[in-house]
Design a protein around this nucleic acid. Sequence first.
DNA 1: CGAATGACCAAGC
DNA 2: GGCTTGGCCATTC
Length: 109
Amino acid sequence: MTSFNEQVYALVRRVPAGRVMSYGAIAHLLGFPGKAREVGWALHVCPDDVPAHRVVNRLGGVSGDSAAGGAQIRRLLLEEEGVDFDSRGRCDLGRYHWEPTALCHPQRL
DNA sequence: CGAATGACCAAGC
DNA sequence: GGCTTGGCCATTC
């Protein structure tokens, strides 16, 4: 049914390991620059096959600790995938922020 | 239907 | 980079 949230999942699913995307970027790429909050909601109810831990806010930090383990687990998963976090729990978006390129070519870290 | 809430973002200080 | 204000929009009460 190609609902907004379906499109979000489709995009997040193709994010390679060790890479992250911001809510706003996802919303913008889908053609809805103002619907960042809905992206957040989509991930809040995300199915198991969606690597929601690869989606962070625009500062590169994981959000929401309400879920079981939530933010902490997601951050650890990213670290396992090779994402380096700083003391404030944020990663370097300039290095890890990914966007759907045709080549899906992994850049040098 | 209206008010409050939220895994957000951009602009201004 | 951090705080405040305004905005966008779906979901919940």
